[in-house]
């Protein structure tokens, strides 16, 4: 008896989005990254093309992260006070596909640094590394609306990925990304409807759909990961079923969320029964990333080089 073919036939696909621009394209990047393109759900390659392999963006902060546990500071201890050197180390030593600059210090409660300082940081990183750059605002609407336009202008032509547009605050960021040729992160609070609605709102402003990356707020292992998983999975299934406005690549914020978990950051003295924190933190981050990858993720923001290495190997082995 013949075994019936139960493979799903998908109608839709995830759009391809290219981040970074080479000299010929008007930027200065040595290499560019293209994500998306999936025509089936992740790792079901008998159903359709998998599209581009997921990439890893390592986070670089524009200020010394005082609250990081020692196990996380250790790999970066010589570069924490220089975002440019930090970025360089991520790319050259730890193999990051992209760098994600998190502009924490512009937040009024976390340093209130000026737009000029943010611009200088962005320029220094663009000079230090040749991979594409993600620039993440401080998620304080008024500050982001004041700073991001200047940052965007400074990186004009580089086709960076800027974050982000939310339901309540999308106009300014979408307008500057459109003007300066960047890609845009549209974000939602683990809500598939709002995720789609933000895409509709920015496309109503004339923003092209092939320059959008979607972000559903991430939850780490033990902290709502299943919820995020199911929302991202629904997004991917909707995209493959032909929903044009959900057919964008997805980014998730694994590093920051994993290292907020007490299981990741507690020291050995605080939790002797949990094993060595040197292993524990990276493991927490690795498992979160590896799990969410299966829901359909294209860019993973990560922290720890050990976790980065493990996830890289994981994606290569599975592909």
């Amino acid at each position: 008896m013949e075994v019936p073919n139960v493979a799903e036939k998908w109608m839709g696909c995830v759009r391809k989005v290219t981040i970074g621009a080479t000299k010929e394209q008007g930027g200065t990047r040595g290499n560019i990254v293209t994500v998306g393109g999936a025509k089936s759900i992740p790792y079901m390659d008998f159903e359709g093309e998998q599209g581009c392999k997921p990439v890893i963006a390592m986070d670089v902060l524009d200020t010394v992260p005082e609250d990081w546990p020692d196990a996380l500071k250790e790999p970066f201890k010589d570069v924490l006070n220089s975002p440019a050197k930090w970025a360089k180390k991520c790319v050259e030593q730890y193999g990051a596909d992209m760098v994600c600059l998190k502009l924490d210090s512009i937040h009024p409660d976390k340093g209130n640094k000026s737009a000029e300082e943010a611009v200088a940081t962005v320029k220094s990183i663009l000079q230090a590394v040749s991979v594409p750059l993600i620039i993440w605002g401080c998620e304080h609407n008024e500050t982001d609306n004041a700073v991001m336009p200047k940052v965007s202008q400074a990186a004009k032509g580089e086709r960076c990925l800027l974050a982000g547009a939310s339901q309540d605050n999308y106009k300014i960021i979408a307008a500057v990304c459109l003007a300066d040729g960047h890609c845009l992160v549209t974000q939602a609070p683990v809500d598939i409807n709002i995720g789609k609605q933000v895409n509709i709102l920015v496309s109503d402003l004339g923003f092209p759909l092939d320059r959008i990356i979607m972000f559903q707020t991430t939850g780490a292992l033990g902290y709502g990961m299943e919820y995020v998983y199911s929302i991202q999975e629904r997004e991917r299934i909707a995209a493959l079923s032909g929903d044009n406005l959900l057919g964008m690549p997805v980014i998730c914020n694994v590093g920051y969320e994993s290292w907020r978990a007490k299981e990741a950051k507690a020291s050995d003295a605080e939790a002797p029964q949990w094993g060595s924190c040197v292993e524990r933190g990276p493991m927490w981050e690795t498992i979160t990333a590896a799990t969410l990858l299966q829901s359909g993720v294209d860019i993973i923001r990560m922290y720890h080089p050990k976790a980065v290495a493990a996830v890289k190997k994981f994606t290569q082995d599975l592909a």
Binding site: D191, N193, K196, Q197, I200, D243, L245
Partner: peptide
């Protein structure tokens, strides 16, 4: 209900 909380609807 959630996807109808938009004008006119999340599914245009």
């Amino acid at each position: 209900f959630m996807s109808a909380n938009f004008l006119p609807h999340t599914n245009l």
